[in-house]
Design a protein around this nucleic acid. Structure first.
Length: 505
RNA sequence: CGGAGUGUAGCUCAGCCUGGUAGAGCGCUACGUUCGGGACGUAGAAGUCGCUGGUCCGAAUCCAGUCACUCCGACCA
């Protein structure tokens, strides 16, 4: 076990160990912010690349809007400002002057600027300028950006004051079309999460009190972490005419009538990296899904005597050039040869902790046999964790094998999710008893304590207090409703709506 | 912003109660033996004891203030 704390011993400590041992990120001197290092930012670059393609395939184009938003913009939408007011970073001055040796803000701004916590307001303002006729619609745009929310309790990747994300914003002529867009992008997220990150999710709609501030409806994908807590991995909002009305996005329709447009917004953030860690990493460190691994195959030369160095490096270079024509997930393989002047064993274990999908060790013995030794990350710690292969066999199968490893990761996570959504809890008493002691580690696989409860909810606003006191949240109202009648798990009243109850991050 | 705790070498910490030359392990550097499941030996480099002030012949240690961080609450992509 490479981690100081195992998942069972102390899950939050384990998480921090994984992030630091895999050298993905660290806390910055700037409070609440993180420094993303090569391996962590590399994951984000892969996420960007794969997701950006999907966003473009669905007809969206990338724009860029300012990071500073005039304060007054937030006053236009009442729910929106209320939702974000408590976590705004505000720019009030434009220069510093030296007062008795102390740098002091000077030149107050006429109107304070908000560092964007999200861009609905400023983008809506542009939409209002751009939209005149139904012929201008729809506008489908996306932006990759950083945003700032003044969080009080930051955690690397999961909740930092500044984070990176993409935010899509669209305007439509009809309610129906905007709703369809919202659902379509949720599906893009589901597909991305499950296929690129190998992270299975539940899809559904947020209850009233969990909606995005200013939205009519918020849809979400929810993932289950290995400790059984839920992580909101992505959201897609149907904003109705709320922002259109506050920003004046009006257009002339085909009947020459002026009407307000309908908008949507949707986003995923660097939190996905935190989710990927808590979904796949183990007690030896990170496990990166091959599809988004910055390097899928890492070669570590085992050089015992300096005079063997050239021979071994030539051998590796030869394998590398053979792999150049190979692909996985429709892309060329990403390969790293670790030539650093360090002990080979240390390098191997460093890549294990980073979670590189395959590590190949190459020594003189391999050259004699025209082969190599492959360690597959997901099997580290198990007998099948390493195997000796002929070079040609490896080259012929590497791409397919990476795709297979990705599939195995998804299947394992999917089984864990499915095995840990309980549906047999039907009364408030059982429900309360269950969650009183359920903050425990979930056994890998099937046996352990479950973490999500699928059951009825009466939607009475008074239930919010009950949820709060139990530290439970309603993660979503799943799309696949059973349409049966049962007892609300909070009040015992008759209810038909199925919801997912869980602890959450 | 409430409650608790911690600041000493790159990291993890001991020393503080009872004031008197700055310590350990890991890591790092060099050399040697090792090397395919995470080595070992020898030698070495490395610290304004968070910061400011006070008490004292003398402060990492006592006192006051201050800053930062961590954990628990409220908030959250």
């Amino acid at each position: 076990m490479a981690m100081k704390a195992t998942r069972k011993q102390n899950y939050p400590e384990w998480y921090q160990n994984v992030v630091s041992e895999a050298d993905m990120a660290e806390n910055s001197v700037s409070p609440g912010c993180m420094v993303m290092k090569a391996w962590g930012y590399g994951l984000w670059e892969r996420i960007q690349r794969v997701l950006d393609e999907k966003i473009k395939e669905t007809g969206h184009e990338n724009y860029y809007f300012p990071m500073f938003i005039p304060l007054s913009f937030f006053q236009k939408e009442a729910d929106h400002v209320e939702g974000f007011a408590k976590e705004m970073a505000i720019v009030t001055h434009s220069r510093l002057v030296n007062v008795d040796g102390k740098l002091t803000p000077a030149s107050p701004l006429e109107e304070p600027l908000i560092v964007r916590p999200t861009s609905e307001t400023i983008i809506a303002d542009s939409f209002a300028k751009w939209v005149k006729s139904y012929r201008d619609l729809p506008i489908l745009l996306n932006q990759w950006a950083n945003v700032v929310r003044w969080e009080m309790r930051p955690r690397l990747f999961l909740r930092t004051r500044e984070f990176l994300w993409q935010e899509g914003h669209t305007v439509h002529a009809t309610l129906k079309e905007a709703e369809a867009e919202t659902v379509k992008m949720l599906e893009v997220y589901r597909d991305f999460s499950e296929n690129a990150l190998a992270m299975p999710v539940l899809v559904g709609r947020k209850p009233e009190h969990e909606k995005f501030p200013g939205a009519i409806d918020t849809y979400c994908i929810e993932a289950m972490m290995q400790d059984g807590k839920a992580l909101q991995a992505g959201t897609s909002h149907f904003l109705g005419q709320n922002f259109a009305k506050s920003a004046g996005i009006k257009f002339t329709n085909q009947n020459n009538e002026l009407e307000y447009a309908y908008t949507t917004s949707w986003g995923v953030s660097t939190r996905l990296i935190g989710g990927t860690i808590m979904c796949h990493a183990d007690d030896d460190g990170m496990v990166v899904p091959p599809h988004i691994a910055p390097y899928q195959i890492v070669f570590v030369p085992l050089i015992k005597k300096q005079e063997d160095s050239e021979k071994i490096m030539n051998y590796i270079n030869n394998i590398q050039s053979k792999l150049k024509v190979c692909s996985a997930f429709g892309e060329k393989l990403r390969i790293k040869v670790d030539t650093r002047d360090k002990a080979s064993v240390d390098k191997v274990w460093e890549w294990v902790r980073k979670g590189a999908p395959m590590v190949c060790e190459i020594g003189l013995r391999d050259i004699e046999n025209d082969g190599l030794m492959v360690k597959e990350r997901i099997f580290i710690g198990q007998p099948e964790g390493k195997k000796i292969m002929k070079t040609d066999d490896f080259v012929a199968t590497a791409g397919k094998r990476l795709e297979e490893l990705q599939r195995l990761m998804f299947v394992k996570a999917k089984e864990r999710l499915e095995a840990n959504v309980r549906t047999d809890i039907t009364t408030p008493e059982e429900f309360a008893a269950y969650f009183t002691n359920s903050n425990e580690w979930i056994e890998d696989g099937k046996q352990g304590k479950v973490a999500f409860v699928r059951g009825k909810w009466c939607a009475d606003p008074a239930t919010e207090e009950i949820l709060k006191s139990m530290k439970i949240t309603i993660r979503c109202i799943p799309f696949d409703q059973s349409d049966t009648v049962g007892k609300c798990l909070l009040t015992g009243k008759d209810a038909t709506m199925d919801v997912i109850y869980a602890r959450s991050y």
